[in-house]
C-alpha cells in the first residue's frame, strides 16, 4: 500500500516535471553525480552546500558521494565505479590523483555520462566538458605577498619560512606551492623556503610539524599553511608556544574557526576559495550541456581566490566563510 502510494506520488511528480519541462528535449529528471575527495574536509562540506542549492534550483537529482575521511585514490576509484553503475546523466568528479582517476573518468565518458572536473583534474582533460577550479597558483602568490607584507619585507635581507602541505601529489597543494615559490622568486628573493612537510590530512600531525620547525629554525618568520588542515594545526602550535603575531601565519581555506582567528591575530591572512561557487557552476554547466548539448564557451574556468585579513569587511568574511552542514 505504502509502496503503491509512493509510486503514484512519484508519477505525479514526474508528470508535473514533464509538464514543467515541456519543450525541453529530456522529459526524465536529470541526475548529476558528484564524487568528491573526503567528506570530513570542510572544503567539500562547503562545496556540498553549493551543489545542493544548485541541484535544487535546476530541479535535478544530486547523488553526493565520496569517502568519509580518506582523500585517497584507492577509496575513490571504487566509489566512481559504483556511481557509473547508477547511470547518472552527468558526473562532477574531484580526482584525488590526476593519473589514478583517469581510467574512471574515461569510463564514465565512454558510458555516455557528461563529466566535469572540479578543484583538481585528471591528466587528460580532452573529453571533459568543463574544468572549474580556484586559482591555486594565484592563491599561493597571494600568500607570499601576505607574508612579505607582515614581515615588512626589505630587499637585501633574508627571511626563513616553511610550508605545511597535506600530500606531495594533491594538485591543489602542488599548484599553491608553485605559485608561492614563483612569487617568492620573482618579488621576494630574500625569502628562503627552508622546508616542506606533510600532514596526511591530520591536524595533529600538522601541529607536530610546526612544533619541530620552531625548534629547528629559531629565526623562522613565516609559515604558509597550504590548506585548512595545516592552517588549524599551525594555528594551534603557534598559540601553544605563545608565538601568535610574532610569526606570520598565512593559511588557506575559510573554516569558521580559522576566520575567527584572523581577528585575534593568529592568522596574518587566510586565502579563501569559493568551493560552493565551483560546485554551482559545475552543475549548471553540466545541466546546460545535457539539456541543450551546448558546450561551455571556455572549458577551463578559474574562480579567483581572495585574501582575508584584518582589513577585510565583516560582510566579505561572512561571504567566504565555509558553512557547516550540521
Amino acid at each position: 500500500m505504502k509502496r503503491s502510494l509512493r509510486t503514484i506520488a512519484a508519477f505525479g511528480v514526474a508528470a508535473a516535471l514533464a509538464v514543467g519541462a515541456s519543450g525541453c528535449a529530456a522529459d526524465k529528471q536529470i541526475t548529476i553525480a558528484f564524487v568528491m575527495g573526503a567528506e570530513s574536509d570542510p572544503f567539500f562540506q562547503a562545496m556540498k552546500v553549493g551543489a545542493e542549492a544548485e541541484a535544487k534550483a535546476e530541479g535535478v537529482k544530486l547523488i553526493w558521494q565520496g569517502d568519509a575521511s580518506h582523500y585517497d585514490v584507492a577509496t575513490e576509484v571504487p566509489i566512481v565505479d559504483n556511481v557509473i553503475a547508477q547511470k547518472p546523466d552527468g558526473l562532477v568528479l574531484i580526482p584525488t590523483d590526476p593519473d589514478g582517476l583517469q581510467a574512471s573518468n574515461d569510463k564514465a565518458i565512454a558510458a555516455g555520462i557528461a563529466v566535469a572536473n572540479v578543484d583538481t583534474h585528471v591528466t587528460d582533460l580532452s573529453k571533459v566538458i568543463t574544468f572549474i577550479t580556484g586559482d591555486n597558483g594565484d592563491g599561493g602568490a597571494k600568500a607570499a605577498k601576505a607574508i612579505a607584507d607582515k614581515i615588512g619585507y626589505a630587499a637585501g635581507k633574508t627571511y626563513q619560512v616553511v610550508v605545511g602541505l597535506t600530500s606531495a601529489t594533491a594538485t591543489t597543494n602542488v599548484a599553491r606551492l608553485e605559485g608561492f615559490k614563483a612569487a617568492v622568486a620573482q618579488d621576494y628573493p630574500g625569502i628562503q623556503i627552508m622546508d616542506v612537510a606533510y600532514s596526511a590530512a591530520n591536524p595533529q600531525t600538522a601541529a607536530s610539524n610546526v612544533n619541530n620547525w620552531l625548534t629547528k629554525y629559531p629565526n623562522l618568520v613565516g609559515i604558509f599553511a597550504i590548506d585548512g588542515t595545516n592552517a588549524s594545526g599551525a594555528a594551534a602550535a603557534l598559540q601553544a608556544k605563545g608565538l601568535t603575531k610574532k610569526i606570520a601565519l598565512v593559511g588557506y581555506d575559510a573554516y569558521p574557526a580559522n576566520v575567527e582567528l584572523i581577528k585575534s591575530g593568529v592568522f596574518t591572512a587566510l586565502i579563501a576559495q569559493d568551493p560552493a561557487a565551483e560546485a554551482r557552476l559545475a552543475i549548471k554547466t553540466l545541466v546546460d550541456y545535457i539539456k541543450n548539448k551546448k558546450s561551455p564557451a571556455q572549458r577551463d574556468v578559474v574562480i579567483a581566490n581572495v585574501t582575508l585579513d584584518a582589513n577585510t569587511s565583516a560582510a566579505d568574511l561572512a561571504k567566504y566563510t565555509y558553512v557547516a552542514t550540521n
Binding site: D41, P42, F44, S69, Q239, A240, P256, E260
Partner: peptide, 27 residues
Amino acid sequence: FGAAAGLAIIVSGGMPMQGPSDFSLIN
C-alpha cells in the same frame, strides 16, 4: 571505524569546532 568517522563529520558539520581552550596544558 567507518561509523565513528562518519558520525564525527555529522556531529561537527565537517569543520573543526572551536571552543574553550587552554594551550598551557599542552606546553
